[in-house]
Design a protein around this nucleic acid. Structure first.
Lengths: 208, 208
DNA sequence: TAATTCCTCCCCTTTTTACATGATTTTTTA
DNA sequence: TAAAAAATCATGTAAAAAGGGGAGGAATTA
């Protein structure tokens, strides 16, 4: 039985590239593609593929949120995150939101095929580079807690403590504590350096 | 006479996508591909294509520098910048370094063909979105002065205004003024967002 | 030359952060 | 289950940044 593969990516070339790669594979069936979250959801109402290859960087709704939504509505569908960015935070979030795998866009045909075949069995597939990234980060003494990561991102968004407190439904002093811990953990003198180091350690990304 | 097209991109899927798109075009000849700057330069020593589609975001050497180098060695080759990022600074730098065009990765087959046919005539091709970006004022006023760049970098280093003032031999109020102008120019609410946006606009780099 | 931009400096007020210090409750892990 | 880690909240002070003005001289450009 062929694996029905659907792809969501806002880049036409990537869609075309994957289609071309999988074209002559006999155990792969091309289910179709979408170039944004909306048309992906519309497609799924009519037809369910086995696996969705999902770009995590898209305008409007990003792949991380879309992944969560799709998984909530259609738990049987396996999702593989697709990205240019080999960043721990992205990989983690994608997996947290129910993805079964993560593949970089510079992956070879073999890697993609292996990923597809692995996830339909209910297993997890992380591309070699993704695993390396995950390990290198956990080895480094820079393990931020869930809350710290949340606060860090909101700080980078330009939010002040009171706004973050409101957003997270906690006290301002709590946010202040997280902020202090962030400064200490990253060994930063102030927010400016904190954000710079966060980029350096790939804790936040340039997705605007 | 068919146009010989070569592509440099570190993403296998993009290479495959473009090849697939151009496969059956009779006036297009596939010259080959490279996945990094080094093998691109190696290829060019043996064979010269008419047009190079060049990704601007690559590890090691980026497309902007590679463009300059290739154009210096082989002025006859036309280069089209290829990118996910629709950013004024990128487009500008690419054109300054001798590129003949700029196409976004979500471009259609028709757009790519038009770009190829335009540049071999010696003309310039910018994709619709790229033109729009160049014209938009929001990014246009992102030209920082010499002093502003200096101050921005020192802020990112974690230095406070008084330290920056000492380092630059100016008054603290002067540094403060530059800081205010930076916030205004980048439309940031505070330093945190300023640094994030500085990364986004490639005004500072991750060199620790 | 006139206009514009850049760099420099100053005033003031309010807001926000940074730092110290301590503590309770919940959750995770060994 | 006991220990460790994480998340929560607090009080207080000092430092720094943000935001609002204005203004003069130098350099560059039209």
């Amino acid at each position: 039985m062929a694996i029905k593969v659907f792809i969501v990516d806002d880049h036409y070339m990537v869609i075309e590239g994957i289609r071309s790669l999988l074209q002559n594979e006999k155990n792969i069936e091309w289910a179709g593609h979408a170039m944004n979250a909306g048309s992906c959801l519309a497609f799924l109402q009519k037809q369910l593929p086995d696996v969705i290859l999902m770009d995590i960087n898209m305008p409007e709704k990003n792949g991380i949120d879309l992944c969560k939504e799709v998984k909530a509505k259609y738990p049987a569908v396996f999702i593989i995150g697709l990205s240019t960015f080999n960043q721990q935070s992205f990989i983690e979030k994608m997996m947290e939101n129910g993805a079964s795998g993560y593949v970089l866009k510079n992956a070879s045909k073999e890697e993609i095929l292996e990923a597809l075949q692995t996830v339909v069995k209910g297993k997890t597939y992380l591309s070699f580079d993704a695993i390396k990234t995950m390990k290198s980060k956990s080895e480094a003494n820079l393990i931020l807690t869930r809350r710290e990561k949340e606060v860090l991102e909101l700080i980078a968004e330009g939010m002040i403590n009171s706004e973050i407190a409101t957003k997270l439904f906690v006290s301002v002093t709590t946010v202040d504590t997280h902020r202090k811990n962030l400064l200490a953990k990253l060994n930063a003198r102030n927010v400016a350096e904190l954000i710079k180091l966060a980029f350096y350690h790939q804790l936040i990304a340039v997705n605007h």
